[in-house]
Amino acid sequence: MTDYFRIVNTTLDDTLDSTRPLAGIRPENLDDVAKIAGRLVPHVAQWAGKYPLMGGVGDAGSRIVFACLSSATAFPHRSLDELVDWSALALTLFALDDVMDGVVLDYSLEQLVQFTEMCLAVGKGNAPTPADRVSDPEAQVLAALRECSGRFAKYPAYAKLQGYVTERWNRCFTAMCQESRWRLHGEPPPTLDDYLANAVWSFFVPLYFAVATTTLDPDDLSEDALGTWDKVMHVGSRAMRLCNDLRSAERERAEGSLNALALLTRSGHTEPDAIAAILAEVHESLAELDARIAELQPSLARIAGALLRTTHFYCSWCLARDTHGLTIGLFRQLLASHKENR
């Protein structure tokens, strides 16, 4: 799995100026985020150690560092236990994505559809009980999902919003299966607009932040509020997916997977021009996200701030040259260096 984390795009790197490993965290928040993430990493690594697919051993934990930094950035005022919840969910979704992309299992489309149906059953209480250590990748994902569901069941709006969250799971899995059809069945490539309409769902952001609504007061969550929240999540997801597509373009080209950069270059753009067009779209999406969040009702403000911070952090993370190789060991060195240079 180590080589999989070497996510490079040479043309993109030649375009960018950013090389700061903790790009995306506001300078005034960096001390707090780094301190929280530093405390969080060993707890999340211990949790991930039960599931080898999560990359929970020593310096192989690049994803653990990302999950902890992202959780600390999004939810800086939550307890350590709650931050473990969010980091565990992120790692589980990464592992699920590995299965769907054929990184760890060479599944047919039919097998992938069956796998998503089993994942969806987690929300209905029909998943296997987690073992101390699970060896099969599919079983690891199912067990971790079940554990995450148990963790989030303690939140105040979980019971009221279980149907809302389950529907987001369903839409996410439907979108992921469509991406698998493009990859495995050689269907005609979609337009960029059709690709992105699907990709905002398959990228997990609407699902992750639908789960975030379970932390709010259930009496404040009307259908209108949730409908507005869906639209805001899609804007953040679009910006993050575009940045992800830039960063992972070379790897996905080798896998035969579609992404926004590949679709633009197929339509006649040079790669530098396509990168510039995508970066312009990212900036427009970030500006739209700021405007939409400013108009949200106060009851959604807490998770709206989390979405905004996450979007800026993730976009900057993907657009920095060296962050996907930020392992646990290197992260500890960065924290020590940051402390010395304050």
Rank of each mutant, 00 (worst) to 15 (best):
E252W: 02
D220L: 14
P218N: 09
S149M: 08
L216V: 11
E138R: 12
R78Q: 14
D230A: 02
A262N: 00
V84C: 13
L246G: 08
G61M: 02
E340R: 11
T129Y: 06
A291S: 13
L105A: 12
G186I: 05
G227Q: 12
Y195M: 08
Y314K: 04
T215S: 14
S108A: 09
A304Q: 01
C148E: 03
L161D: 04
L289C: 07
I275D: 08
T92I: 12
H234N: 07
T10R: 14
R133H: 12
F66Q: 09
L264V: 02
G102C: 11
D14L: 00
L93Q: 14
Y208R: 10
V200D: 10
D97W: 08
E281A: 13
L69N: 06
D98T: 09
N259P: 03
D98P: 05
Q114E: 15
F75Y: 15
A143R: 00
E271H: 03
W182F: 14
S202I: 08
D106C: 01
T2S: 08
S248F: 03
L261V: 04
H185T: 08
D97Y: 09
L53C: 05
N198P: 03
P27N: 09
S316P: 00
A212C: 12
P190M: 12
P27H: 09
V33Y: 07
A159N: 04
Y208M: 15
F75A: 02
L91A: 10
L319R: 00
R302G: 12
K231L: 14
L22S: 02
C119R: 00
A262S: 10
D85M: 10
A287V: 01
V65S: 08
R321I: 03
S180F: 03
K154R: 15
Y107Q: 11
D224L: 12
L145D: 12
V211G: 08
S257H: 13
K339P: 02
S18T: 15
P272D: 04
A23H: 02
L22G: 01
A95S: 14
D136M: 01
R20D: 15
G325W: 02
V122W: 07
C172L: 13
K50C: 11
D132T: 11
R241H: 06
S79H: 05
K154W: 05
E147V: 00
C119M: 11
V282Y: 11
M54D: 02
E167D: 13
V33W: 06
Y107D: 15
A127K: 07
G256V: 03
N29W: 02
E295P: 00
E223N: 14
L263I: 04
G49T: 05
T15A: 14
L53D: 10
A67N: 06
R253Q: 14
F204Q: 13
E187L: 15
D230L: 06
L264Q: 12
D219I: 05
I328Q: 13
E281D: 13
G55L: 07
A88Y: 08
G102D: 11
F173H: 10
D220Q: 12
L120R: 14
D273A: 15
S87F: 07
Q114D: 15
L96S: 15
G329S: 09
R151S: 11
S180E: 11
L145P: 12
D81C: 08
